[in-house]
């Protein structure tokens, strides 16, 4: 929901980032305010996941220029776990498996870490069990997933659901969902989308990375951005996603190049 009164949650300016010496992000700008839902779209390899991981602080990526302010704090000065505790949540495109660590144990540790951070009471294993089962029910997840190792042997869709379960437990200020829809069957998509909608409120914000309009039918974005070659080349309302669906990304690229050319020519003149 766009609201003039709302506070800025995330403000990214001129972000450049490299991985293994290769520049992937090339001047990305994005402002996200509380209560808003942003969709980020763009071709494979354009840098969407890179952007998400850079925000979360993955050590493989180096920020070479630009800033990212999160609720007034310089995100790049915080360690990854501090960013998480401050309220940045990333639902991974490919959630990793952690053999040997029971999901229930992991979920409780992350939940209690966040509770401690917020000065709230931590839950003991029994209390947590009740709490998490209730959250799982809403996501139509079987309690069997509590006893299994974190993501180990989970199907693609089950992993995505486990990510949203974590988001529901942690109640972040900013949720970045990297292709949470891919791998979900039609019913799961509606359940997960419903779960996300329940979590969205006027004080937090959601950034959805997706390739498909169908997710946006459920979670309606306030803004749609197109990323290409490491930067946002076009921003529009929810209609932009529909247009992309019919016309593909090429026309945006062409339009963007034309605009670029125009500025360069104007500058030269």
């Amino acid at each position: 929901m766009i609201n003039k009164e709302s506070k800025t949650i995330l403000e990214v300016h001129g972000l450049h980032a490299t991985v293994n010496g290769v520049e992937i992000l090339k001047g990305l700008d994005l402002t996200v305010k509380s209560g808003e839902v942003h969709a980020i779209m763009g071709p494979n390899g354009s840098g969407k996941s890179t952007f998400a991981k850079v925000l979360a602080g993955h050590t493989a990526y180096e920020v070479t220029a630009g800033t990212a302010m999160f609720e007034g704090q310089n995100l790049f000065e915080l360690a990854p776990e501090e960013r998480a505790r401050a309220g940045v949540f990333l639902a991974f495109q490919y959630p990793i498996e952690i053999p040997g660590v029971a999901n229930s144990q992991f979920l409780r540790l992350t939940y209690n870490t966040m509770q401690a951070q917020r000065g709230n009471e931590e839950l003991d294993p029994l209390e947590f069990d009740d709490y998490v089962r209730d959250k799982m029910k809403r996501l139509e997840m079987s309690p069997n997933f509590l006893d299994r190792s974190v993501n180990e042997g989970f199907s693609g869709g089950e992993k995505k659901r486990n990510e949203i379960l974590q988001m529901a437990l942690l109640e972040p200020r900013l949720g970045v969902l990297d292709e949470t829809d891919s791998g979900l069957d039609i019913d799961a998509l509606s359940v997960v989308a419903h779960g996300v909608n329940e979590l969205a409120n006027k004080d937090n914000a959601i950034v959805l990375v997706t390739h498909y309009q169908r997710l946006l039918n459920y979670i309606v974005p306030d803004f749609v951005h197109v990323v290409d070659n490491g930067r946002i080349i076009k921003t529009g309302g929810k209609e932009l996603a529909l247009e992309l669906e019919t016309r593909g990304y090429d026309w945006v690229g062409v339009e963007h190049q034309a605009a670029n050319l125009a500025t360069v020519t104007a500058g030269a003149a």
């Binding site: 050590t59 998480a84 505790r85 952690i98 029971a102 540790l109 966040m114």
Partner: peptide, 26 residues
């Protein structure tokens, strides 16, 4: 791996606690 630790970190759990959890499970 780094990615496992990043996963823990992204959930607010520091490397020490993460390693201890993984090792204890192991």
């Amino acid at each position: 791996g780094e990615d496992q630790l990043f996963y823990f970190a992204q959930r607010g759990i520091d490397a020490e606690a993460a390693v201890s959890m993984i090792i204890n499970g192991f």
